[in-house]
Amino acid sequence: MSAELVGVVVGALLSLMVLSYLIGDNPLYRVAVHTFVGVTAGYVMVVAAVNVIYPQLFLALLGTLTPERLLLLGISWLLTVLFAFKLFNPQSAVGRLPLAYLVGLGAAVAVGGALTGTLVPQVGATFVSLLPDPALAVDPLEQLVSAAVLLAGTVCTLAVFWYGGRTLPNGKVARPLLVAPFARLGEVFVGLALGVLYAGVVAGSVAYLAERLNAILTAVEQLLQ
């Protein structure tokens, strides 16, 4: 029995053990889950140690230590040591410095990327011309409908998140008259979007299930062979 077959068989068994949740929480399912969690945790630690900590902190000291390199290594070592104090409660406050540095740097990068990579392009993308572009190899009607739908969808979706309202005589609060119809249409778009997302999740789940079943069948087939 080759290792590949063992792996396939073990995978199939674990899959069946997870699928046993169909009858409820049971020890097989618990074993499978705990196995997956444990293996994953171990694998992650090994990868982090082998691929990041060892080469970046220790192997780097063995290489050519230029002043820049030495400065970078010194800062890396300092932040690493300070962050290690997070393990000890009395001195955990010391680890706030590297954590604050990481959080701040990550937020800055994320905000910058969101602005330049998401907000601006997306806003720019909504500025579409209802007039079809002859340069595009797309049917002008299709372009028109697409643009209209895009425009309507954008505006109506934004109208859904209009939180301003007016008080009716019966005491209820309603959207403004100008916003209410667009909000209603926007709710349709939002629903559709959420539906598409859910469909994709279902499709992916089905794919995952199909792949697992295929693996089980393959393993069975190989065992039978």
Binding site: P121, Q122, G124, L197, G200, V201, A207
Partner: peptide, 14 residues
């Protein structure tokens, strides 16, 4: 994946 595609498509379309 199929579930991510609707979320990423605007980037492509943009």
């Amino acid at each position: 994946g199929a579930g991510v595609a609707p979320l990423v498509r605007p980037y492509y379309e943009a």
